[in-house]
């Protein structure tokens, strides 16, 4: 029996999946895969949101429409696309913090030492990622769609967030305790001073609890194997294989499960048997074989789909449809890969 692969089989195995995440380095086909899966699901009558954050606005390129920073835009029936402008979001967020400080203390200018901190925090590279995760959480919590497909930015800080979620939960409990203690002291002092003590609603503690909830929900969103398909996209090249392996290991160390990998830009092995195929093309197929062998040996059953190399760049709805067919049910099977590996 041929071992067929494709997202179709993933969804059959896990019918509860509502979120698909495509991660991996830039330029390997994350955005294309996200667009293709979104397209396919929308054709099946699901309301889908395809989410991307790329500052290079790849989704805009793929759908041949300017979407960057424009909010949720309907591309075709049931298919919505959101390409957020994370830099703009960060700017607005930081401005809102400044405004809050000014309003709270009725001051015109923010104290130097506070301003310094705001500026250095704003320049942190982690800021970008956090803003993206925050936006992801926002769209999911609104639950306006049946399906969410995320084109993730290169994943580094995210893994830290996931690792943190558990510790953070306990830590917030401890902090709450410390705050209560501080209040006890205050209460005692006002009693001695014979002043009236009014229990204030602790806004700070509320914020802290809200932050914890957000980080915990983000971690759940990423790591729930029943509801989320976390996928990495790679191509048959040494660096991509090494990177994916590393990410897989990192996941395992955290006790998480990756749903699988998508192998992109694979030359169809049938070319080798085609007498009319030009020699240079056959050479290219041959060159990919050792890499495909490595992918098959290292990832095996984790391979979710194989997208062949297309004759032209996947742009426009027509090409996206082509890709989506392959993503849903790949022409190249695991048996093909096995056969190639034995060569």
């Amino acid at each position: 029996m041929a071992r067929r692969i494709g997202f179709r089989y993933l969804f059959e195995r896990s019918p509860g999946i509502r979120i698909a995440i495509f991660a991996g380095k830039g330029g390997l086909g994350k955005t294309t895969s996200s667009a293709a899966l979104s397209y396919r699901l929308s054709k099946m009558g699901k309301r889908v949101l395809c989410f991307s954050t790329d500052p290079q606005a790849s989704l805009s390129d793929i759908f041949e429409k300017d979407l960057f920073g424009k909010g949720e835009i309907e591309i075709s029936e049931n298919l919505y696309v959101l390409e957020i402008d994370a830099d703009k979001r960060i700017k607005e967020y930081i401005e809102s913090i400044r405004q809050k400080i000014k309003d709270m203390y009725k001051i015109e200018e923010i104290p130097r030492e506070v301003e310094d901190y705001i500026e250095s925090a704003a320049a942190e590279p982690a800021m970008y990622e956090s803003a993206v995760y925050d936006a992801m959480l926002d769209v999911v919590s609104q639950s306006k769609y049946d399906f969410y497909v995320f084109d993730m930015p290169p994943f580094g800080h995210g893994i830290r967030m996931v690792a943190m979620a558990d510790i953070l939960s306990k830590w917030v409990d401890k902090i709450t305790e410390a705050r209560r203690q501080a209040y006890e002291y205050e209460k005692a002092a006002s009693r001695l001073k014979r002043e009236k003590y009014t229990e204030r609603e602790d806004q700070l503690l509320k914020e802290l609890e809200n932050i914890r909830d957000r980080i915990v929900s983000f971690s759940k969103l990423i790591t729930d194997p029943k509801g989320t398909a976390f996928t990495m996209v790679l191509v048959p090249e040494k660096m991509a294989i090494v990177d994916t392996e590393r990410a897989l290991k990192m996941f395992e160390e955290l006790g998480l499960r990756m749903s699988g990998v998508v192998v992109n830009q694979v030359y169809p092995p049938v070319i080798l048997r085609d007498p009319r195929a030009p020699e240079y093309l056959k050479k290219k197929v041959e060159a990919q074989i050792p890499m495909l062998r490595e992918i098959y040996e290292k990832f095996g059953d984790l391979i979710l789909a194989i997208i062949p190399m297309f004759r032209r760049e996947p742009r426009g709805l027509e090409m996206i449809e082509e890709v989506s067919k392959e993503l849903w049910e790949s022409t190249i099977t695991l048996d093909d890969l096995e056969e190639l590996s034995r060569r």
Partner: peptide, 14 residues
């Protein structure tokens, strides 16, 4: 904490 979230607490500590 990630600095993104620290900023949310900052106003209270000014």
């Amino acid at each position: 904490l990630p600095p993104y979230y620290t900023l949310r607490l900052l106003p209270y500590m000014v």
